[in-house]
Amino acid sequence: MEAINRIDSTIVPVLNDNIDTDQIIPARFLKQTSRDGFGENLFRDWRFDDLGNQRDDFSLNQDRYKGRVLLAGDNFGCGSSREHAAWALYDYGFRAVISTSFADIFKNNALNNGLLPIEISEELHQKLKQSVLADPNTTVEINLEEQVVTCIEITEKFEINSFKKSCLIKGQDEFGFLVELRNEIESFEDER
């Protein structure tokens, strides 16, 4: 996993509340046996119509919105546990999603793949949303080490699981860490 510390980017808004993982990546695109290429079908049915034409009213298709940060509505990533949702967002080029809250499994999947789920206050979310809609050049800066997000001249602290944070900064994944613990796990089994 790539180490992350700072993200400085313009923002793409997809502002609905409760965006579920079926919207992020519909089930019919889960048939791949590798982790690659899911970005192509990110938000598939919101991006394209039945004939495969781009829907102009969707922000990902609008030239004015570009960037590595997605601004989403409340309870982002609810529904299915499919990690493909995090893979699709990452593969498309996103490195962070900003919302007022995330579904637990999605949050965990995102963190395990170097995609930052950043929770901000409702107040800041409102302001940021208005700013992005009025001015697509609005930028946001995320500083993981300091756990702060800065935008529209406001700086806010965000919460992040401290263990995940240290993994992300070092670019280390949990998998390797756990495998190192196999002996301890074995002793735990013996003592039960």
Binding site: S81, R82, E83, H84, A86, I105, N108, N109, N112, N113, N161, F163, D173, E174, F175, F177, L178, V179, L181, R182, I185, E189
Partner: peptide, 19 residues
Amino acid sequence: GIGTSQVAQVLATQALIIS
């Protein structure tokens, strides 16, 4: 429920890092 990265963790170690 868990994501695929965690499926790999459990397959490899029968354990999970979790809050």
